[in-house]
Each structure stands twice: as structure tokens, then as C-alpha cells.
Design a protein around this nucleic acid. Structure first.
Length: 700
DNA sequence: CAGTGAGCGAGCTTCCGCTTGACTT
């Protein structure tokens, strides 16, 4: 009897990963991707039996039946299956569900679980040698997480439908993100800026002039509250001698930063490149899936959804080899090691270039501008992370002038270290010079420079800072940071104004309601405590059912109470306007609908007239239409502005009309921004040259 | 950089976390 040839089906989550692994393993293996979860709760109902131990009702995810079937067929053919979804809680559940589906079709198939935390030939081969079993405690922890989130979301959302507006949503994660944004907004609003002044003095020694800042006067605290205070002080300093009292030199070593996690990448891309989290992830996905270089399609970066700064030994050796060739004097003897956050699930490496030889310059011809910029910061951050520190020297000079103490300082880099490799990520250097000074030197007074300031209140959240805050509090995961921001924007809970996230009236109303009624759930500690309990379940020390039950009973009671007693604020947020309904003469109100704000007759339901909000008059000669905001059909594309007389009038623009008309030609103005002029107002008329700098205007 | 292109809303919704393409019931 001939020996049957062993063939193995290996299942991972991502198709790009599948391709790479197939290459590493060679014949004898087929590698397929599940594309995430295949089995989940149905969307249309709670699907958790709260009467019977919270038993979840699982179905095949819409659109995934085909993939599941393919996996079952391939498993049958191979006879041998290795489940290799990510080595974390969600990955364990994915494997578990696939295993059940395969065994249901054919109980004879040999199914095992393997794990690896990096995609290198060695790591994969080792993992394949050590097949194990699915961890049921881990699966249970995921089940608890899933059921809890479903219960919270599907109980809180209907409260909002009943009390505020249909179609709204709330959940463990999004509602806390909204709360953070609302609380910050309250701080911004209550902040009262205070005036203060600073005083600098321009001094000279020999030919060199330099600035020193007032740091102290007499014994007390330095307080310059008004221009009068500064004037009084300047008078007191009239004619005094400026004498060098102390010269201090300090040296500082600056260590490179670790390679990127998802949250760090989003933060840095936001701050350095002005990308939203969503844009960063879209472009990172393109770099990960592969770019045509010559005739080869090459995945340029490792997986982009990770919470770890860990890198593989292979990658470490490669970057050290690269560095000893390119920067031989900047390679540390011992490789730099970065500790991984204790909250991290560590299923993937840090985000790094797959091949360090593909420098930003080398790949530039094959990438578009945004891809190139994002790749550059990933490459720079990774390479720099394995280089020696930079050395800085700061010289600080104290200058006595009567009772006043001024200080001049400057910093120079004495050793560039890892900074030698940074271009897009390079720190902005401020050129400052000091003459060589020693104690006792008498300096020549040139002039005082006074400046008015106001204390700055707390800053509103941006994509970068909300992601940072969420990660620090352990809320959300690398795969959800960008979607969290999107959901708040899509539901009009929050709007983006110059990159800042500002809550709308709707967002605040919802937050007030939720925080008042469910302070313990809409709380950063709720997730932290949940994670602790999930860890206990994972370690086999806790029952998932009792954990969920403990939460559910009081929660459901509160939900019922709120549904019964809370007053509805439906319609309260509708704004009155001066627009008059042309059908019945009643006033119209501004309401929020599925696609944004619109005008509706206040006589509803007697009069059901609705229309878009007119933003400007149509500038086409002879057209009496209004310019209104429109969106593309279903794709929820970018908002544009067109004429109400469409298709008779096909005027269109992507610039949002401003309130004011052009003083030159009467068309409407829009806000534009470019590198030369910055943000400015311009006329939409292509034949009109009206330009107006926004800074000159009354508003910023 | 240039040039871009549609629905009318009043309801049946919603969660979080995995992953990429894409049609209707």
C-alpha cells in the first residue's frame, strides 16, 4: 500500500500574509486567508439569550459564506489543517469558529492550531513543527467581550432612538471617545485667557548681538500682567550694567524612538504629514499589500495593525548590516531594545520596512507622493531606532542686571547619531548664536523687546491626540482607532474644524444623557476593568457567563428605568430658521437627516415639504437656483456644491461657499488654501481675481 | 494640478473587532 502524501492547509487572516507564507513553506502546503471573522452575531437583532446564560446565536457573516465554503473544501482535500490566525484573543476565536465549521463538514480532518508573532521563514517553520490546540479559555474571553459589547451597544442605542433621534448609536468605545471630546470642549469653553508679558533684552559683545530673556526679578515670583508692568520694570532697569554671572554647560543624550505601532504611526503621520488616521491606514494598507517595483509586486511594509514595537531577529540583523555599510560609526555595539507596552497583545511585529535596502529614495519612482511620504517616515523611524543616540550641548548664560536676572541659552548638536538618517522626521533646528562669554563680562545694552501673550487653554483633540488618549486608556484596538473617529464624524456627533474634533449640539446632548444615566459604563475605567476580568477568564480563573451576568442584571434595570422615566428631547435640537415654506407659508426648521442637515417645514406632518439648505445664489447668468451641498449617491463620497436647478443648470464646485458675496463681481467667495497664500478667501468666478487673506479678516 | 457630477430626507436604525473587496433579497 502506497504511503498517502501529506498535504496541509494553513489558514491565516490576511491574504497578503497568506501569499508570503505560501512562498516560505513551498510544496506540501496550501495557504488561504479567512479575511477576518467568518462567524459572528447577526446584525439585525440582539442575538444573545439573556434568559439562558447569555448564549450567543452565531451565524456566518454576510458575504463570507463563499470563503467559509472554500476553506471547508480545501480542508477536505488536504485532510490536514493548521489554523494560524493572529496570536491574540480575536485570532483564537476566528480559529475556533473555522475549526467547528470544518469538523462539522468532515469530523475526520486533523485540525491543529499554530501561532507565530512574526512573518519570517524561520518563525513559520518553527511554528509548523509545534502544532497545539485551541485555547478554550481564550475563546471564552473573546465571547464575553463580544457579548458584553453587543449588550451595551444594542441596549443603549435604542434609548437614543426613543429619546433623541432615530438611527443614533452608543457603545462601550465610541461613547467614551465622545465623552473625552465633550469634556475637553467644556474645558476649552470655561478657560479664561490671561494676559501676560515677556521681556527680552538684546545685548552685544564685540560684534555679536544676542537675546536674553528675563527669568527673575528680585526675590518674588515674576509677574508681568500688563504693558504698564513691563514699562515700570524697564524704567527700573534703565542704565544698569549687564554682567555675566554664570555660564553653565550641560550635555544631553537623546535616544532614538522605537519603531512604529499603529497608534504611533497615526500620530506621527498626523503631526508630520497632516494625514487623518483614516488616510494613514488606507495608504499603509497599499504599502503592505504591495507596490509594483520593476515587474515585481513587493509588500514594502510589515502588517500595519499592531500594538507592538518588537522586531524580528532577521530584521534586526538586516538593519545592522545596512547600517554598518552606510553609517559605520553610528551602529551601537549592542542592539537597541524597546520594551513592549504591557497592554499589548503583541501578535505582530512593529510596523517596519520589509526590506531595509529599499530606501525612500530607491522606491520613490514607484510610489505616489503620499505613499512615498508615509513609507519614508516608517523607514526612517525603523532605521533610526537601531542607531546610536544623538548628543546635544546646551550653554546657558545667566546675566545679572541690577535686581533682574536674564538668561540666554543655545543648544548645539555635537553628535548627530540617529538623526543622521532622519529627513522627513528631522527636528526643526533653531539657529541661535551666542558669543563666547565668561563670568564677569560686561555686556552692551542694545534694546528691550517686550511681547504680549495670553495663557493658552487646553487644546481640542485631533486625530493624533484622541488616538493617543484612547490607546493610553486601553480603549479600542489598532484596527479600530481610525473607525472610531469616522463613526463620530459620520453620525454628526463631532465635526472636524482645522483638524480639531469639535462636538456638535447633537453630540453634547447624547453625551449628557449617557453620562447622566450610565456614568459607570461610559467611563474609561469600564474597559480597564473589563480587560482585567477577561484576563482572568483567559487564565482559566473566571467564568465568562458569570462575568456577563454580573454586569447585565443591574445594567438592564437601569436601561428600563431610563426608558420609562427620561423625558424625550426629540426635536429639541431642530433649529428655527427664517426660511419660509413655499407650500404653506410656515417657517422651516433645520434638521439633521441621514445625509446631513436639511430644511423641513415646521408644519410637519400636515406639510411634508423639505429642501436643502441654500448656501449661496447660483452665479450662472439667468439662473435663479441656489447652491446646495450634495453628496454622491451611495459611496458617501466627498461633499460637493451644486445648483438646485440641476440638470437644467450644471454648476458645480468642491469649494464650500462662504456667507459673503464677492465685492468685485457678486459671485460667492470660498475658502481656499495653498502653500503660497495659506488659508485665504477667493472668488469662485474664474474670471475674477478677488483674493482676500483670511488673516486680515476679522476671523481666523 | 485640474476638474470633478446627484437626489428629494419623515425613519426600522444600533455594538466592537477581525479582514478586504463590491451588488441587491
Amino acid at each position: 500500500m502506497a504511503e498517502k502524501k501529506v498535504h496541509t492547509l494553513l489558514i491565516v487572516e490576511s491574504p497578503a500574509k497568506a501569499k508570503t507564507i505560501e512562498k516560505y513553506l513551498g510544496p506540501g502546503f496550501t495557504v488561504k486567508a479567512s479575511m477576518g471573522h467568518l462567524i459572528d452575531l447577526p446584525k439585525s437583532r440582539l442575538a444573545v439569550d439573556v434568559e439562558h446564560d447569555f448564549e450567543p446565536e452565531y451565524i456566518t457573516v454576510r458575504g463570507k459564506a463563499k470563503i467559509l465554503k472554500e476553506l471547508q473544501v480545501a480542508a477536505n482535500k488536504a485532510g490536514n489543517v493548521l489554523l494560524a490566525s493572529d496570536n491574540d484573543r480575536e485570532g483564537e476565536a476566528i480559529s475556533y469558529h473555522i475549526q467547528n465549521a470544518i469538523l462539522k463538514k468532515n469530523p475526520q480532518i486533523q485540525v491543529k492550531r499554530i501561532v507565530f508573532n512574526e512573518i519570517t521563514p524561520q518563525a513559520i517553520r518553527e511554528a509548523v513543527q509545534k502544532p497545539g490546540d485551541i485555547s478554550i479559555p481564550k475563546v471564552n474571553a473573546q465571547k464575553a467581550r463580544r457579548v458584553l459589547d453587543r449588550i451595551v451597544g444594542y441596549n443603549l442605542s435604542p434609548i437614543l432612538w426613543q429619546k433623541v433621534k432615530n438611527g443614533l448609536s452608543a457603545g462601550r468605545v465610541q461613547s467614551v471617545a465622545l465623552r473625552l471630546i465633550c469634556e475637553r470642549e467644556a474645558e476649552v469653553e470655561s478657560f479664561v485667557p490671561e494676559e501676560y508679558w515677556t521681556l527680552d533684552v538684546e545685548l552685544s559683545k564685540g560684534k555679536t548681538q544676542f537675546l536674553a530673556s528675563l527669568v527673575k526679578y528680585g526675590e518674588g515670583k515674576l509677574e508681568l500682567k500688563s504693558s504698564q508692568d513691563v514699562e515700570d520694570l524697564e524704567k527700573k532697569l534703565h542704565g544698569v550694567a549687564f554682567i555675566v554671572k554664570e555660564v553653565k554647560e550641560t550635555e544631553k543624550s537623546i535616544r532614538p524612538r522605537p519603531p512604529f505601532t499603529t497608534s504611533q504611526l497615526q500620530q506621527t503621520a498626523a503631526n508630520r504629514l497632516g494625514f487623518t488616521s483614516k488616510k494613514t491606514m488606507q495608504i499603509a494598507q497599499q504599502l503592505y499589500e504591495g507596490v509594483n517595483i520593476g515587474s515585481n509586486r513587493i509588500g514594502l511594509i510589515t502588517y500595519m495593525r499592531t500594538d507592538s514595537t518588537r522586531i524580528s531577529q532577521t530584521a534586526l540583523q538586516e538593519v545592522r548590516a545596512y547600517l554598518s555599510k552606510e553609517y559605520p560609526d553610528k551602529v551601537p555595539e549592542v542592539p537597541n531594545y524597546y520594551s513592549v507596552s504591557k497592554d499589548a497583545q503583541d501578535a505582530h511585529e512593529a510596523i517596519r520596512p520589509t526590506m531595509v535596502e529599499y530606501t525612500p529614495d530607491y522606491v520613490k519612482p514607484y510610489l505616489n507622493k503620499d505613499q512615498h511620504r508615509l513609507y519614508s517616515i516608517i523607514w526612517e523611524r525603523f532605521v533610526a531606532s537601531q542607531m546610536v543616540p544623538a548628543q546635544q550641548k546646551t550653554i546657558s548664560v545667566d546675566i545679572q542686571a541690577g535686581e533682574a536676572l536674564f538668561r540666554a541659552s543655545y543648544t548645539i548638536t555635537t553628535e548627530k547619531g540617529f538623526q543622521a538618517v532622519l529627513h522627513l522626521l528631522a527636528a526643526k533646528e533653531t539657529e541661535k548664536k551666542l558669543p563666547s562669554l565668561k563670568v564677569g563680562d560686561v555686556l552692551t545694552f542694545v534694546r528691550f523687546i517686550r511681547e504680549q501673550h495670553f495663557t493658552q487653554g487646553p487644546a481640542r483633540y485631533t486625530d493624533a491626540t484622541i488616538v493617543k488618549a484612547l490607546e493610553e486608556k486601553g480603549i479600542g484596538r489598532p484596527s479600530t482607532y481610525a473607525p472610531i473617529i469616522s463613526v463620530l464624524l459620520d453620525r454628526y456627533y463631532v465635526v472636524r474644524k482645522n483638524r480639531q474634533l469639535v462636538p456638535t449640539a447633537l453630540g453634547r446632548a447624547i453625551n449628557d444623557l449617557l453620562v447622566k444615566s450610565f456614568p459607570d459604563v461610559i467611563d474609561v475605567n469600564f474597559t480597564a476593568e473589563m480587560e482585567t476580568k477577561l484576563d482572568r477568564i483567559e487564565e482559566n480563573g473566571g467564568e465568562w457567563v458569570s462575568m456577563v451576568r454580573e454586569f447585565y442584571l443591574p445594567f438592564r434595570k437601569k436601561v428600563d428605568h431610563v426608558l420609562e422615566t427620561m423625558e424625550s428631547i426629540k426635536g429639541v435640537l431642530d433649529e428655527e430658521t427664517d426660511y419660509v415654506c413655499e407650500l404653506c407659508g410656515r417657517k422651516m426648521v433645520k434638521k439633521l437627516g441621514r445625509y446631513g442637515y436639511f430644511l423641513a417645514c415646521s408644519g410637519f406632518p400636515a406639510c411634508t415639504n423639505t429642501k436643502s439648505i441654500p448656501l449661496a445664489d447660483c452665479p450662472r447668468p439667468g439662473c435663479n437656483g441656489k447652491i446646495v451641498a450634495r453628496k454622491k449617491a451611495k459611496g458617501r463620497g466627498k461633499e460637493f456644491y451644486g445648483c438646485t436647478n440641476y440638470p437644467a443648470c450644471d454648476f458645480i464646485t468642491y469649494y464650500k461657499p462662504l456667507e459673503t458675496k464677492c465685492p468685485k463681481c457678486g459671485w460667492f467667495l470660498v475658502e481656499k488654501s495653498d502653500k503660497k497664500l495659506g488659508t485665504h478667501k477667493a472668488c469662485i468666478n474664474p474670471d475674477c481675481d478677488y483674493l482676500h487673506s483670511a488673516e486680515e479678516g476679522e476671523e481666523s
